[in-house]
Simulated scan of single mutants.
Amino acid sequence: MNPDLDLTLQRVIRAPRAAVWKAWTDPDRFAKWWLPAPAVCRVDRLEARPGGALVTRYSEDGVAFVPHMDAAFLVVDELERIVFTNAIDSSWRPATPAPVAMTAEIVLTDRPDGTDYRVLVRHGDPAARARHEELGFADGWGTVTSQLAHSVEEEAGP
């Protein structure tokens, strides 16, 4: 981790790692938590494999959907790690995504009380990192992580 270029988030999710993995790799489950509520997510493509696509749209009203993310998975180590980037799109073409280009790494490890969930978002330069932080990285990624946790913890039950 490079503090000049990277942003991080860590949380314990009180659900089995397999449930968190499924929430990341099943399009219907992913759509439930990927955007901060009340925004609605629609998953056009979620191909959880190296080189696979991650294409989503969002809506403020649940009716009109606009593009949100067009990214590619770089690494998919089952039940352990997902890495994706929006610096190339789902067709493997170089991209200049708004608001910033990033590569996100999600790492899942078992804990006695659930899953250790770690996010590392890498940026190409300090200005991109600063912009992402100013735009609300902590709130945005924090909110969707809470939504993810709620959805899988609810499924896991007591």
Results as ranks from 00 to 15, higher is better:
Pro38Met: 05
Val40Cys: 08
Thr8His: 02
Pro38Arg: 04
Val40Glu: 13
Leu35Ser: 10
Lys32Pro: 01
Thr8Met: 03
Phe30Glu: 08
Trp24Pro: 07
Trp33Phe: 08
Lys32His: 12
Pro16Ala: 13
Ala18Leu: 10
Leu7Glu: 09
Gln10Ser: 14
Val40Tyr: 06
Trp34Met: 11
Trp24His: 14
Thr8Cys: 04
Ile13Glu: 08
Asp26Pro: 01
Val43Phe: 08
Pro27Gln: 10
Cys41Asp: 04
Ala23Gln: 11
Val20Gln: 07
Lys22Ile: 00
Trp33Met: 07
Arg11His: 04
Arg11Ser: 01
Lys32Asp: 12
Pro16Trp: 04
Arg29Val: 04
Arg17Cys: 03
Trp33Cys: 09
Ala15Ile: 05
Arg29Gly: 09
Thr8Tyr: 08
Arg29Glu: 15
Lys32Val: 11
Lys32Met: 12
Pro38Gly: 03
Val43Pro: 11
Val40Ala: 09
Gln10Phe: 01
Asp28Val: 10
Arg14Tyr: 06
Gln10Leu: 03
Ala37Arg: 15
Cys41Glu: 06
Ala18Phe: 00
Thr8Pro: 01
Ala19Asp: 12
Ala18His: 09
Leu9His: 06
Cys41Ser: 14
Ala23Gly: 11
Asp28Leu: 09
Ala18Thr: 12
Thr8Asp: 05
Arg42Pro: 11
Gln10Asn: 14
Trp24Leu: 15
Ala37Lys: 15
Thr25Arg: 10
Cys41Arg: 00
Lys22Met: 00
Arg11Ile: 08
Val12Asn: 03
Asp28Trp: 00
Ala15Ser: 09
Leu7Arg: 02
Thr8Asn: 00
Pro38Leu: 02
Ala37Asn: 07
Leu9Gly: 05
Ala15Tyr: 03
Asp26Val: 06
Asp28Ile: 05
Ala37His: 15
Trp34Glu: 04
Lys32Phe: 00
Val12Trp: 02
Arg17Glu: 07
Ala39Trp: 15
Arg14Trp: 01
Trp33Pro: 01
Val40Thr: 15
Lys22Ser: 15
Phe30Asp: 05
Asp26Met: 10
Arg42Asn: 09
Trp34Cys: 08
Ala37Pro: 09
Pro27Phe: 06
Lys32Ala: 15
Pro27Asp: 05
Val12Cys: 00
Leu9Ile: 01
Ala15Asn: 04
Val20Pro: 01
Trp33Gly: 02
Arg42Thr: 03
Ile13Gln: 03
Trp34Asp: 01
Leu35Val: 12
Leu9Glu: 02
Ala18Met: 06
Cys41Phe: 10
Trp21Glu: 14
Ala39Asp: 12
Ala39Tyr: 13
Pro36Met: 07
Arg42Gly: 07
Trp33Val: 06
Ala31Leu: 03
Val43His: 10
Ala37Leu: 11
Pro16Tyr: 02
Val20Phe: 03
Arg14Thr: 09
Trp21Met: 14
Ala19Thr: 00
Lys22Asn: 11
Thr25Phe: 11
Leu9Asp: 09
Gln10Pro: 06
Asp28Lys: 14
Arg14Cys: 05
Trp24Ser: 00
Phe30Lys: 07
Val12Ile: 14
Trp24Arg: 04
Cys41Pro: 03
Val20Leu: 02
Gln10Thr: 13
Ala15Asp: 02
Arg17Gly: 05
Ala18Gln: 15
Val40Ile: 15
Val12Asp: 13
Gln10Gly: 10
Lys22Gln: 14
Ala37Gln: 13
Leu7Ile: 05
Asp28Asn: 13
Pro16Cys: 07
Leu9Tyr: 05
Cys41Met: 07
Lys22Pro: 00
Trp33Lys: 03
Lys22Ala: 14
Ala23Ile: 11
Arg42Val: 05
Thr8Lys: 08
Arg14Asp: 00
Ala19Met: 12
